Amino acid sequence: MSGKKVTSLDVARAAGVSQSAVSRVFTKGASVSEAMEKRVREAAERLGYRPNVLARSLITGRSRIVGLVVAYLDNPFFADAVEKLSHALQAEGYHLLIFTVGNSGADLDGVVSELMDYQVDALIAASVDLSGALVARCASAGLPVVLFNRGIDKSGMSAVTSDNRAGGRRVAEFLLAGGHERIAHISGWQGSSTGRDRREGFEAGLRAAGAAPLEVIDGRYSRAEAAEAARAMMDRPDPPDAIFVGNDYMALAVMDVLRFDLGLSVPGDVSVVGFDDIAMSAWPAYDLTTLRQPVRRMIAATVEEVLARIDTPSRRPSRIEIEGPLVVRGSARLPRSGSGGESE
């Protein structure tokens, strides 16, 4: 059949079955006998047939593609999350179509328009804020939207995050238990729910003990801005003896500044605690104490919510917050009474 595109009808004739039987064999979850599936797949392999997913989507009304809009991928947390999300969706017969828009989300309207053109079955927005107008547009188009690692108040959209407030509070309690008296915070971008929630939880933890942060600077999830914030803090007449940094991506830059630019000891002079537990945090060069985001559980919850909203568009939105552990390594002074978290 050289020079001619092999069709499902060709496979049906070669396997001695109906064309609808061929369709069932290549449709995930469809009912088909083992013997029929074996005949059809052998015929398809012999003829070099591949099912036309786009053509099938016109019949079923499902593209089996989920659009993912992510702010950026230079933070290793998102690269890891995207990989896990892709694998989890593939296990359910779906695939990802990925767009990046940057922290400002300036191109977001155009990106979502493109995703709609591709007839995606759902949209996942990872650390991206959707405007009210865009939310309404997705709703009018019947496009289910689930937020990952970001919540938007009063948006009416499902969101899956770690319990950022509880995590920030736990970091505060850990640093206080370590005897620190001048505790500063380089926060995540305060235009994001994650940055605000971690800061609020951290400040609430300090307040409960009658303390307050020495200084708070918005690091905007930027390594360069976090590094400058660390230099400014250490240039004070009363520099901090501990810094909680809003994510590991920034925390590693802060540690580099403290040790290599300023010649300080971590944790001898300054304790540093991050948030996320990216792979590099466990490297001996950093050995970063950090609040771990439970990525696998967050991904599982996101996929479950996405599939549920595809099947039931009228489903009520859910707000899912999953608490993660404090992973204690060597970048912060230990509490006198114990580690206050999970040691590695």
Score class of each variant (00 low, 15 high):
278 I>V: 15
278 I>K: 06
279 A>C: 09
279 A>L: 12
279 A>T: 08
280 M>E: 13
280 M>T: 09
280 M>P: 09
280 M>H: 13
281 S>Q: 07
281 S>Y: 04
282 A>Q: 04
282 A>M: 09
282 A>I: 05
283 W>S: 14
285 A>K: 05
285 A>P: 04
286 Y>I: 03
286 Y>W: 07
286 Y>R: 00
286 Y>T: 02
286 Y>V: 08
287 D>G: 14
288 L>H: 01
288 L>A: 03
288 L>F: 02
289 T>M: 05
289 T>R: 00
289 T>A: 01
289 T>I: 03
289 T>E: 03
290 T>E: 08
290 T>P: 08
290 T>F: 04
290 T>I: 13
291 L>Y: 09
292 R>E: 14
292 R>W: 02
293 Q>V: 08
294 P>L: 05
294 P>T: 01
295 V>H: 00
295 V>T: 12
295 V>L: 13
295 V>I: 13
296 R>Q: 13
296 R>N: 14
296 R>S: 13
296 R>G: 14
297 R>E: 13
297 R>V: 09
299 I>L: 07
299 I>S: 08
301 A>G: 03
301 A>P: 06
301 A>E: 07
301 A>W: 02
301 A>K: 01
301 A>D: 03
302 T>D: 03
302 T>E: 01
303 V>F: 02
304 E>C: 08
304 E>V: 11
305 E>S: 15
306 V>Q: 05
306 V>E: 11
307 L>C: 11
307 L>V: 10
308 A>L: 13
308 A>Y: 00
308 A>R: 14
308 A>W: 05
308 A>T: 14
308 A>S: 15
308 A>C: 06
309 R>L: 11
309 R>K: 14
309 R>I: 12
309 R>F: 09
309 R>A: 14
